[in-house]
Design a binder for these strands. Structure first.
Length: 455
DNA sequence: TTCCATT
């Protein structure tokens, strides 16, 4: 039926309204088709805009590739059709580079010229927005890993291009997994579940899993808007990542309620709506403390005692953190919070304090040495989330994210004040350099007001 | 400053 050395092709950039029967005529002209499958979402059945194609003859695949790949654009598509061996056919990894800090003016050709000396280039594309303006970065794929590595060695940081804010970045491009994680963060923040206690809990992961399955079912029944369907698909991707062990949490299968269920809400405030923990089985990524204290003592002290030096987050080597990426985020965040194994956040200490001091609405500063400055906060972090982030380290007097007056957008920095310097120091130790996504928090003592005016 | 999708 098919030759032993047949090649499975990946077909990309096909309109989502084209099914196998529509695609067949396009490809049949190059030979007899053994198998043609449009790739669909596992849960929603949504057409993903690409397909796999195997010809009976290897020769047909080669002919189709040279005749079609990047050669024509199907109706409704912005980019030319892709016809190339599927990833499963050979290795495609570790030879593609991400190039950052390009000037906005550099073209594909400019970039190609820069990288040509290091080897044979398979692809070279400057990333552009919808309006065609360069995003200041590019992908360059070499034929071999060694060539790509050579380019990194020579070019990375070698110079600063005109119009770029820092020196040239040349590194291996994100893997599929890393992309997935990035997307996950985006979705999480869009859904408003970015707050510290989300994503990190076993209970929440199980909850997410339940949501995913429900959403998928409901989406299939066409109850949901396209936006919600997309969300469901992305949630499913999150679950897939989860299942791949990136988030080291056991997943308990959920049987969705059948029949006349109301479409669940992906709520803006999911935390209070969380169901009881589901099948977490006491799993915790935090190692037992070495000091002989019962683990539960460590795990349940948030907001009650200042954090100890043995704080798992504080103990992490910053270099480890640099490579741990999102995994670090998911694993160490709850540790920093002392929240692992506890499904719901504690009563914030600030609430009680505000209660005691109802009149004082001012931003309160603690004494000198008690106030910390936090920079590189996630854009979507609010006062409350920052408060929660720092509660484990002591009594928080105030937590304020600075907001642009015109746009109401966070300026991504803020201040937290404690009632004693030790808490501030503990917070700095634990959270300075803490990685969230691709950024790291900068946490340091707030400068005294007159710091810049020595006299 | 991370893309267009890889059962």
């Amino acid at each position: 039926m098919k030759e032993a050395d047949a090649i499975k092709l990946f077909i990309g950039q096909i309109p989502r309204n084209l099914e196998e029967k529509d695609l067949k005529p396009i490809f049949e002209q190059f030979g007899k088709i053994y198998e043609l499958t449009v790739i669909k979402d596992k849960y929603t059945g949504m057409h993903k805009g690409c397909a796999f194609l195997t010809y009976c003859a290897r020769e047909s695949a080669l002919k189709a590739q040279s005749a079609l790949h990047e050669q024509k654009t199907l109706p409704g598509m912005n980019r030319p059709i892709q016809v190339k061996p599927a990833d499963s056919e050979g290795r495609g990894e570790d030879r593609k580079l991400f190039v950052g800090m390009l000037g906005k003016q550099q073209s594909d050709e400019d970039v190609r010229k820069m990288f040509e000396p290091f080897g044979s280039i398979d692809e070279c594309t400057v990333l552009r927005g919808p309006d065609g303006t360069s995003k200041g970065c590019a992908f360059v794929k070499f034929q071999s890993h060694a060539e790509a590595q050579a380019a990194i060695n020579t070019l990375h940081g070698s110079r600063t291009l005109p119009g770029a804010s820092s020196s040239l970045v040349v590194k291996f491009a994100d893997t599929e997994k890393e992309r997935g994680l990035r997307r996950m963060q985006q979705v999480a923040s869009q859904l408003g579940i970015f707050s510290p206690m989300t994503l990190n809990f076993g209970a929440y992961n199980a909850y997410t899993q339940a949501l995913v399955q429900q959403q998928a079912l409901v989406a299939q029944s066409a109850y949901l808007s396209p936006v919600a369907t997309v969300a469901a698909v992305q949630m499913q991707q999150m679950a897939a990542l989860n299942a791949n062990g990136i988030i080291a949490t056991p997943i308990t299968p959920i049987t969705p309620s059948s029949g006349t269920n109301t479409p669940p809400t992906i709520a803006a405030t999911p935390v209070p709506a969380l169901p009881p923990p589901i099948g977490v089985n006491g799993y915790s990524p935090v190692p037992a403390p070495a000091n002989g204290q019962p683990a539960s003592e460590t795990l349940y002290t948030n907001g009650v005692h200042p954090y100890q030096a043995q704080s798992p987050a504080a103990a992490l080597d910053p270099l480890q953190q640099a490579y741990a990426g999102m995994q670090h985020y998911t694993a160490a965040y709850p540790a920093a919070y002392g929240l692992v194994g506890q499904p719901f956040p504690q009563q914030p200490a600030l609430v009680a304090q505000q209660h005691q001091q109802p009149q004082q609405q001012q931003q309160r500063e603690g004494p000198e040495g008690c106030n910390i400055f936090i920079y590189h906060l996630p854009q979507e972090f609010t006062d409350s989330e920052m408060l929660q982030m720092f509660l484990p380290f002591g009594n928080v007097i105030s937590a304020k994210v600075f907001v642009d007056r015109a746009t109401n957008q966070s300026k991504c920095f803020g201040f937290v004040s404690f009632d004693n310097p030790a808490s501030a120091q503990t917070a700095i130790q634990a959270m300075n350099g803490f990685q969230i996504g691709m950024k790291r928090l900068k946490v340091q003592l707030k400068r005294p007001k007159d710091a810049n005016r020595p006299y």
